[in-house]
């Protein structure tokens, strides 16, 4: 891993260029959405908590939701010099950490997060080229902006590049 490591908190996003690496720790039902322009080596990482800002009470933080966070990050990477047409996306997360027989909506939010992210990416014309979602375990994700490699680390299920 070359360059500096930039931490992305929950309900936050960061954009940058090679040789930086953007990392977000400990995602459960949250999703880490990465964007990357392979030619300009510019990208971003967004850590969303919830799918839909219209179903929540007002929030000062658009990065908390898929529907408001993704367009915001697209604008920022384009402003940094990426080409929107070349952007590719990868997503990881969306787990269900505890399984109850009577799982409430809040428990299944991981699945809804993943579905909404895909929908918002599609609506914005961004191609989703890889995903690692679902399951019952946490993930730490990072994108190396020199290569576009998106690493997904887990406690018991090893580490993979998607």
């Amino acid at each position: 891993m070359a360059g500096n490591l930039v931490k992305v908190g929950m309900a936050d996003y960061k954009v940058g260029r090679s040789p930086s690496t953007l990392i977000s720790y400990g995602l459960g039902s949250c999703i880490g959405v990465s964007l990357y322009d392979p030619l300009r080596k510019i990208g971003g990482l967004l850590h969303i908590m919830l799918p839909d800002s219209t179903q929540a009470r007002s929030s000062d933080n658009p990065a908390k939701f898929a529907d408001t966070g993704i367009p915001l990050m697209i604008n920022d990477v384009v402003a940094l010099g990426a080409s929107k047409a070349r952007l590719v996306a990868k997503i990881a997360g969306g787990a269900q950490m505890f399984s109850f027989a009577s799982a409430s909506d809040a428990m299944r939010v991981g699945t809804r997060n993943a579905e909404t992210c895909k929908q918002i990416l599609r609506r914005n014309g961004i191609k989703l080229i890889a995903e690692d979602t679902g399951g019952t375990y946490g993930r730490t994700v990072s994108i190396d902006l020199a290569t576009g490699s998106y690493k997904v680390k887990t406690i018991d299920r090893g580490e993979k590049d998607i």
């Binding site: 929950m10 309900a11 720790y25 400990g26 995602l27 459960g28 039902s29 949250c30 908590m49 919830l50 179903q55 929540a56 009470r57 929030s59 908390k64 787990a95 950490m97 505890f98 809040a106 428990m107 939010v109 375990y137 946490g138 993930r139 730490t140 406690i155």
Partner: peptide, 17 residues
């Protein structure tokens, strides 16, 4: 698991509000 992932469960509900 990771603390962040586990606390997600609780925080998501609050995050909605």
């Amino acid at each position: 698991d990771m603390a962040g992932a586990i606390l997600n469960v609780v925080l998501v509900q609050l995050g909605q509000m």
